[in-house]
Simulated scan of single mutants.
Amino acid sequence: MDFLSLPKAEIHIHLEGCFDPEDIEALAKDAGVPLPRSRENLYDTSGLSNFLAFLDWTCGLVRFREQLAGAAYAFSRRMHLSGVRYADVIVNPTHWTHWHHRIPDMIDALDGGFAEAEEDGFAPAKLCISLLRKQTSEQAIELVELLTALKHPRVVALSVDGNEAAAGRTGPRFAEAYRRAAQAGLRRTAHAGESSGPEGVRDALDFLRVERIDHGVRVIEDAELVKRLVDEQIALGITPTSNITLGLYGGYDSHPFEALRKAGVPVSVNTDDPSPLSISLPQEYANMANANGWDKETVRAVARTSITASFAEPELKASMLRDLADW
């Protein structure tokens, strides 16, 4: 099957995880900072905590507007080369040292890069601005109030990411921020059920009232929660290679994606951090299709979920779904 031409959306991907090693080397050179390792081994980190620390270091190299705009443009080019028709891209301002207190400028610079990419024929992307799990409830509310006042058309959703195991329970802490986000018309998603168990997903549903969950794979450990996702049709943005690389599962054939799909949970295939994982979305579809014996209609159904669960405009969704039906 031709997974490149497959009409699809990418709905769980981090801009911070889209810097190729040569891009990082160029940024480090501009900043006068030595690389921590050789270019070939830049992403050789062990464990989620070390990986997140490396993302902080990388994003800390980005100091100027043109560098941010360039990162956005490069992201859109990457999506184009993967046959992606639309992307919800996660950006967490806490990773970007020089932009912590300049979030409106940061969003404006990213918007410039995405707009230029669209003019060049690349697919549109919208921003999911993310909280870090270690932030306080006051900081979360402050971010939502900023986004609400800004009303930037490029910003479509509020997210939360980071190490669940290290940060502890965060649902109650961010409940008020998410309530205000919903009131302001922002869409809501959250990372849950990866480094935490099913309880992280339950908190995201009960306290954050999310519309979509990033990861969510460990709900497979709780049959009642699986049924709830089916009943409420809460989609999971699953990233199999990321889960396997971090040691959650032994391989594509033992990953719970297929069990969740067969149970009726809306599931989509995504790449999470494609540069360090050396993965593209067509490759990720091929991995899952080969491991689980998917036929064309199954692939079409998974791609359909990526589109319907995305935060794209209704007209764009309808266009993508028409193309998918003809694929």
Rank of each mutant, 00 (worst) to 15 (best):
G264D: 11
P256L: 03
R261T: 13
A165T: 04
L146P: 03
Q183F: 11
L158W: 06
E118Y: 05
A289R: 01
L35H: 12
L281G: 05
Y86R: 03
P276H: 02
Q233N: 14
Y73D: 05
R169G: 03
V267T: 13
Y178K: 02
R228L: 02
I213K: 00
H14E: 08
G83E: 12
L147M: 15
E232N: 01
H80T: 10
E284T: 00
P266S: 09
L229A: 13
L205P: 06
L260P: 01
R169S: 10
P7V: 02
T305L: 04
E66I: 01
E258F: 00
P266G: 10
R63Y: 05
V155D: 14
Q139L: 05
D20W: 07
T271M: 10
K151S: 12
W96N: 12
W57P: 12
T148Q: 13
V210N: 01
D326P: 00
G113S: 07
Y249S: 00
V160M: 03
R180V: 06
F19R: 01
L68M: 07
P124T: 02
F257W: 04
A9C: 15
N50D: 15
R63V: 08
V144F: 13
S5E: 10
A74Y: 04
R37Q: 14
E66W: 06
E194R: 08
M79R: 15
F64R: 10
